[in-house]
């Protein structure tokens, strides 16, 4: 009789273990919206009203934003114990602008058909968080894979950087007054063979850390800083491109603190 009871207890114990194992740890969702700003003012759909010459009809001339897209991965929030907790991206949406690891953000206003999201849809273990950090770019393990076999959000030829067999981690195409800015950020100085290993001297994947972030806040990109003394700033990943210094400086590469991203309420 005794062994039967013992077996029962063991059975219950195993059952409980299984239950525990199968039940998911409680999670929470957090949406982190991104927006564009110019001298602190939001650039949104209201900026789409342009006259026939393409000039902004608003009182303060804001820049014309032809494109701002970013690849973002390794998204983490800091819990109250000070530990950074990895968030995953919510199950792929219809538009498939992200997988669990990588999101493509398309912050270009006035677009009929955006190619990426405007917010990071995060899933985190339940808890209290502050502070946000993420890495710009496509993870190295995926950056040089065959783009023709790539799954969303890596399957868009516009953001593939075919000449370096990689991706454009960030893409800016802006104009303001007589000035223009065209920036492509990606890994450069690469050697290797397609289909085998390709490694790059300049990885160019800056980590953006926003320690003042509180859930509910937005991440803002301040675009005014792009317009420096260079009338036509270009950085297309070539060593002689004059605009690269400004871009790297703003985005937090080559030992600079990033200044492009801010937290706003």
């Amino acid at each position: 009789m005794e062994w039967k009871q013992a077996m029962k207890r063991i059975g219950i114990f195993i059952g409980l273990l299984l239950l525990l194992g199968c039940s998911e740890a409680p999670e929470q969702r957090l949406e982190v919206p991104f927006s564009l700003h110019f001298q602190g003012e939001l650039i949104d759909a209201n900026n789409c009203q342009v006259d026939s010459q393409g000039l902004d009809l608003n009182a303060t001339p804001k820049p014309v934003v032809n494109a701002v897209t970013l690849y973002v991965h390794n998204v983490e929030l800091q819990n109250h114990q000070g530990q950074w907790v990895r968030a995953r991206l919510q199950g792929a949406t219809e538009q498939a602008w992200h997988d669990e690891q990588i999101a493509l953000l398309d912050l270009t206003p006035c677009q009929a058909e955006p190619v990426g999201g405007q917010a990071l849809p995060l899933v985190l273990p339940k808890g209290q968080y502050q502070g946000l950090r993420f890495t710009l770019g496509v993870p190295e393990a995926l950056n040089h894979q065959d783009p023709l076999q790539a799954k969303p959000p890596l399957d868009l030829p516009a953001f593939q950087w075919h000449w370096t067999v990689g991706y454009k981690f960030a893409f800016f195409d802006l104009a303001w007054r007589e000035n223009s800015v065209k920036y492509h950020l990606g890994s450069s100085g690469c050697t290797g063979n397609i289909g085998e290993t390709i490694s790059c001297q300049y990885k160019n994947r800056p980590q953006v850390s926003l320690t003042h972030f509180q859930p509910g806040d937005k991440v803002a990109l301040e675009l005014r800083q792009f317009f420096t003394e260079l009338p036509h700033a270009r950085c297309f990943g070539k060593p002689q491109d004059k605009g690269c210094e400004t871009l790297f400086n703003l985005i937090g590469l080559q030992q600079h603190e990033q200044r492009l991203f801010h937290v706003v309420d």
């Binding site: 783009p147 000449w163 492509h184 063979n193 397609i194």
Partner: peptide, 28 residues
């Protein structure tokens, strides 16, 4: 460009390249 060792892949440069723009094929 010593990275361009694959003839099929190379075609993506004129089709989609934007520095310089060549054929500007657009989206798939």
């Amino acid at each position: 460009n010593p990275l361009q060792t694959d003839l099929a892949f190379q075609a993506l440069i004129p089709l989609f390249g934007d520095d310089p723009i060549e054929m500007a094929a657009g989206s798939v």
